[in-house]
Computed example of a mutant assay.
Amino acid sequence: MKANNKLRFNEDTSAQIGIGTLIVFIAMVLVAAVAAAVLIQTSGVLQQRAQQTGSEVTQEVSSNLNIMHIDGIRGNLDVENEDGYSKTYDLLKIQASLRPGSSSLDLGQVILTVSDGSTTNTLEYINDSHEDNFTKNLEYLLKNRENITTYFVANPIRDDDGSFQLKDPVISSGDIIYIYIGTSSSDSGINLTNYDDALSTVKNSNLQLDTRTPVDIIFAYETGTPSTISFITPSRYEVDPVTRLYP
């Protein structure tokens, strides 16, 4: 009599579980790789933007002029009554340099606005003069009605590297310059003391800088935050026609 043998098969599913785990692991690795690539790309873009922003902020903060002082000059009336000088400040003489950390500044791109509280003149550097000579430029400015309300002139005091030229006025670190703004009025003197007699026909700038006058000068730069200098002229005139108005 034959034995009744039954075939038995064991169902072992552990291999399937191992493959499933491997698939999940590979998927996690792929997701992590994609996420890492996105993070690396994003961090690179943020770093570039941060560097650009830092550079722009540095320019905004430091790329401007340091106004050391401002003198007001009264014209000579050439008369014997009183002190012989006009009753308005007819020329502003501004001594300036670059602030620490500033890069070179092209004065030809700077716009000045000067106001006496009632009249405002917007000025740019006088770079179209046919003479590469400061005295000629100053004469060209003060003897022309249109020019005195449109332009300012400048002259270097210290320029060791020779970067500042009258036709290419670039200010670099260590340079000191004078900026001149014509503020003569209808009450101005017939000539400006310490300057050529050729300046005896100064024109009216429509500004009236007499005593107790609030004056605002705004410097707008090509890059950087505009700066404002404000002061009030003295309550009385000094004996000397040149008066320190700021600081």
Rank of each mutant, 00 (worst) to 15 (best):
S63L: 14
K167R: 11
V57A: 14
G18M: 11
E131F: 08
V242T: 15
S163K: 05
S14C: 05
P234A: 05
E124K: 04
Y89W: 09
N10C: 06
I171E: 01
A198Y: 13
T211E: 01
V110R: 01
L207A: 08
I177L: 05
D196C: 12
R236S: 07
S43F: 08
K143A: 14
G44L: 15
F231A: 00
A35C: 14
V31Y: 12
A15Y: 11
G162N: 14
S230I: 04
L107M: 15
I73E: 04
T119H: 03
I148G: 03
I229S: 04
D71S: 08
V110M: 08
I190K: 09
T183Q: 01
V61Q: 07
S235W: 11
L192Y: 01
I19G: 11
V215C: 03
N121R: 01
S185Q: 05
A27L: 07
V239T: 14
Y178S: 02
I181T: 05
D240E: 07
V45P: 06
F25Q: 15
I177R: 02
F164D: 08
Q59I: 10
V29I: 13
I70V: 06
L142K: 02
T233V: 01
N133L: 07
L141P: 08
S205V: 09
Q16P: 10
E146W: 07
I40K: 10
D160P: 11
G174D: 08
Q208F: 08
I40H: 13
E80G: 15
N64V: 07
R236W: 10
I70P: 00
T53A: 14
T233I: 00
K6G: 12
L209K: 02
A37V: 13
I126P: 10
F25R: 06
T135V: 13
D187C: 03
P156L: 10
Q41A: 13
K87T: 04
T42V: 09
R212Y: 02
G189N: 03
I40Q: 12
G18K: 15
V114K: 02
G54C: 06
R244W: 03
D161H: 12
I176Q: 11
T13W: 06
D210V: 03
S235A: 14
V153N: 04
G174W: 07
S188F: 03
I177F: 05
L209E: 00
S63P: 15
N204A: 03
D116N: 03
P226D: 00
S129R: 04
K143I: 03
V170Y: 04
G54A: 11
G224R: 02
V38N: 13
S118F: 15
D159C: 12
L46D: 07
R236G: 02
Y246K: 01
E131S: 08
D216F: 08
K136C: 11
L107R: 05
L46N: 14
N76S: 01
K143Y: 09
N10T: 12
D83Y: 02
I26L: 14
S62H: 09
D128R: 14
F134T: 13
A220K: 09
G117P: 03
I229F: 05
P234G: 03
G84M: 07
I171Y: 05
V239R: 02
Q48H: 08
V31D: 12
F9L: 09
Q48E: 10
N147P: 07
K136H: 13
R49T: 07
D90W: 01
